[in-house]
Amino acid sequence: MASQGTKRSYEQMETDGERQNATEIRASVGKMIGGIGRFYIQMCTELKLSDYEGRLIQNSLTIERMVLSAFDERRNKYLEEHPSAGKDPKKTGGPIYRRVNGKWMRELILYDKEEIRRIWRQANNGDDATAGLTHMMIWHSNLNDATYQRTRALVRTGMDPRMCSLMQGSTLPRRSGAAGAAVKGVGTMVMELVRMIKRGINDRNFWRGENGRKTRIAYERMCNILKGKFQTAAQKAMMDQVRESRNPGNAEFEDLTFLARSALILRGSVAHKSCLPACVYGPAVASGYDFEREGYSLVGIDPFRLLQNSQVYSLIRPNENPAHKSQLVWMACHSAAFEDLRVLSFIKGTKVLPRGKLSTRGVQIASNENMETMESSTLELRSRYWAIRTRSGGNTNQQRASAGQISIQPTFSVQRNLPFDRTTIMAAFNGNTEGRTSDMRTEIIRMMESARPEDVSFQGRGVFELSDEKAASPIVPSFDMSNEGSYFFGDNAEEYDN
């Protein structure tokens, strides 16, 4: 783990906690998980779902989305002020799938948001429990990260689609708070800032007046979040320049895209947490497990152990491969979309394939898809080993990566060399080191050039047997250095459309 220093740990961010010791953190995270579980059980009762239907990941996603929508204050306010045809701002819903006479049927349900809020609060001892809501947002974000390569979004903001390893959390809503900021990748933060800068260039009043003052505060806050992700002084200094700019424009845009590229080699610290679907927490609570009393951590053995003992089902389209669908969801559960496939294969105990080789589309089923041909199958979400999630980018030494994705962002704290394609990355730096950030740029390029592919990161860190909950005997895996390590390699994943 990167030293926490003055930073709060993510469990504290996750639970809005002030400084807590490890036991208190485990208890408050457990409380959050228990609340999600209780809410899910109650919703299944309301909807009269069978046990099997309640364990269907598509039903879980609909129920999670309903509660997130019920608590989305800004959108609710907007919907009330701008009524649109056929949208009731006070209601929320989605597809629920039921097994009827041996076939899967889709039923569109509609609930009062007020009623959903009441059920959620009741499951969370009367609190709004925003930490639990954020947790579900991060699960949705991790699922998107594993399912889609955001080529269009990258290109629109002047970045290269091969930089997708920097895009963790790119679909997280803005209201996801400190826990959300911690899991956002460098590219995601750059993209958010670039969008602001572009608006400022096109709209003279963007930075002016009372609204402009708020915009400015948001801009500086985002700059500080991004600065905190960088691990070298030169990158941090460049972020200070971007933040202090009187009138952010093209120079800042250039600096930010430069920094994003540099992060492929001088990786930023991005938190990883295993956020599971509500249909995993519900049955665990129903079986009598007391998360608050037992304590829970999002970055240790607990999620692995929970998945070892969970039964989750998914709808499967006619030509999809259930094992591939399982891999997709497994990666999402562990926030591992940008991790090295060699490491993932070792931990999972079966070969993890790149996205383009998977015969599976996303987990969600569109409303126009034919239910007649839908089957369902068990998702295999178990693992051979477990490993500690990392909050750091690993040290800054790398190795060759593949054509589709030119770097990785480690999820697990496991000893290995970190793949990246130096030639491709360095070719993108057209040696432009003039301007006010020239000395920093020169320094950053120097550090990137001296990074050695064969150097090892996370020295001495290994994986653990599932029986080793105290992480007492690390097993340090050895990897084939020459092997392909990137998930979005030469990829044809669908595009994420909101």
Rank of each mutant, 00 (worst) to 15 (best):
R74S: 10
I444M: 13
F479Y: 13
V414K: 04
G158R: 05
R441A: 11
P303A: 12
R389D: 04
E484I: 06
K90V: 15
N76M: 04
S478M: 05
G187T: 13
E244F: 01
K236P: 01
R342C: 02
Y385L: 11
D145P: 00
G282Y: 00
F338H: 13
M239P: 00
G37S: 10
K77S: 02
G462H: 05
P477Q: 05
S438W: 09
M426Q: 03
Y219V: 08
G126Q: 14
A337F: 02
H334A: 10
N319Q: 04
I347K: 02
R150N: 03
E339M: 07
V456P: 00
L47A: 06
A284L: 15
S438I: 03
S486C: 12
E369I: 09
I406H: 02
W120M: 08
D340S: 15
T442E: 02
G30W: 05
S359I: 07
H324R: 10
I347F: 13
A366S: 12
M66H: 04
N101E: 03
Q405P: 04
N142S: 13
V463H: 06
H140S: 07
L47P: 06
N432C: 14
K273F: 05
E115A: 05
G435Q: 03
L256M: 12
F458H: 07
R400N: 08
A471C: 03
L110K: 08
L108V: 10
E80D: 04
Q398F: 02
V352G: 01
I41M: 11
V242I: 13
K227I: 11
A271C: 08
L315Q: 09
E24W: 14
S402W: 02
P248R: 05
R162G: 09
G158D: 13
N417T: 13
R342S: 14
R246H: 06
N205E: 03
E469K: 12
T373Y: 07
N21R: 07
C275E: 00
Q459H: 14
G54A: 14
Q241E: 12
R441Q: 07
R391T: 08
R175C: 03
S377M: 12
F420M: 06
S413T: 14
E434C: 03
L143W: 13
V352N: 04
S60Y: 06
Q58S: 00
M238S: 02
I265Y: 03
R384N: 03
K77W: 08
M239S: 05
A85E: 11
V476E: 11
N125F: 09
S269Y: 07
K273E: 09
L259G: 01
E484P: 02
S383A: 06
I425C: 12
E64V: 10
V186R: 00
E380T: 07
E494T: 07
V155W: 04
T360Q: 06
N202Y: 09
N142F: 03
D439S: 05
V270Y: 07
Q58H: 10
E495L: 10
K227G: 06
A70S: 15
T437G: 00
G54Y: 00
K103G: 13
L379C: 04
P89V: 06
M481R: 11
G460T: 06
K48P: 13
K90N: 14
R150W: 11
K357Q: 11
P354D: 00
S297H: 05
Q42D: 10
V456S: 15
P277V: 01
M426Y: 00
A471I: 01
Q241Y: 06
T23G: 07
Q415E: 14
M481Q: 04
L49R: 03
M481S: 05
V194S: 11
Q399H: 13
N432P: 14
A366Y: 04
K48I: 08
R117Q: 13
Y219T: 03
T442R: 01
A146W: 10
K48A: 09
T23Q: 14
Y111A: 02
N144D: 07
A233D: 10
Y111R: 07
Y496K: 08
A278Q: 05
I444A: 09
G282C: 09
D240G: 09
Y148R: 02
V270C: 05
A451Y: 03
D127I: 09
F420N: 14
